[in-house]
């Protein structure tokens, strides 16, 4: 995958979410993003370590509109692949990319989670004018 372009998109999404929230609050002079939590699916094609390296290098690069990300800490939660067996309905965690139902041994299944890269939460520090 292309972790740097993913991180660029991530930073834009973080700023957008922070701004949206601050607009709802009103009277904010500065917003500092403190923590970012993402979920990285095992089948997303994204390498968490490379995302982490790129984030530390690129944070702060897209700051504008009073939102700063230069001190943001990134937490990456690995999302295992979860699948549902089409034959027996059993839901199971896929280990080592072996898409085999542990109950009925069928390989006919549907992925429920683990294919995506999600921005889950952000913690922001707001300076409110009094």
């Amino acid at each position: 995958m292309h972790e740097r372009s993913l991180v660029r998109l991530l930073l834009h999404q973080i700023i957008e979410a922070a701004l949206k929230n601050s607009l709802a609050q009103g009277n904010c002079s500065e917003i500092r993003v403190r923590k970012v939590v993402v979920a990285c699916g095992e089948l997303s094609g994204v390498e968490p370590e490379l995302v982490s390296l790129a984030f530390n290098e690129m944070r702060g690069s897209t700051d504008h509109s009073g939102v700063t990300t230069d001190q943001a800490e990134l937490e990456i939660r690995r999302q295992p692949i979860l699948a549902r067996c089409i034959e027996c309905g059993f839901e199971f965690k896929v280990e080592d990319f072996e898409f085999l139902c542990p109950t009925c041994r069928s390989t006919n299944n549907q992925v429920l989670a683990g294919e995506d890269f999600h921005l889950q939460t952000i913690d922001i520090e707001l300076d409110n004018r009094l």
């Binding site: 993913l6 998109l9 991530l10 999404q13 979410a17 922070a18 929230n21 609050q25 002079s29 403190r34 995506d116 890269f117 999600h118 921005l119 889950q120 939460t121 952000i122 913690d123 922001i124 520090e125 707001l126 300076d127 409110n128 004018r129 009094l130």
Partner: peptide, 17 residues
């Protein structure tokens, strides 16, 4: 004067949406 507050925001966005 200003006062600082911390907020936790649930975003839950798929970056590839």
């Amino acid at each position: 004067m200003s006062q600082s507050t911390i907020q936790h925001i649930e975003v839950h966005t798929d970056l590839a949406e």
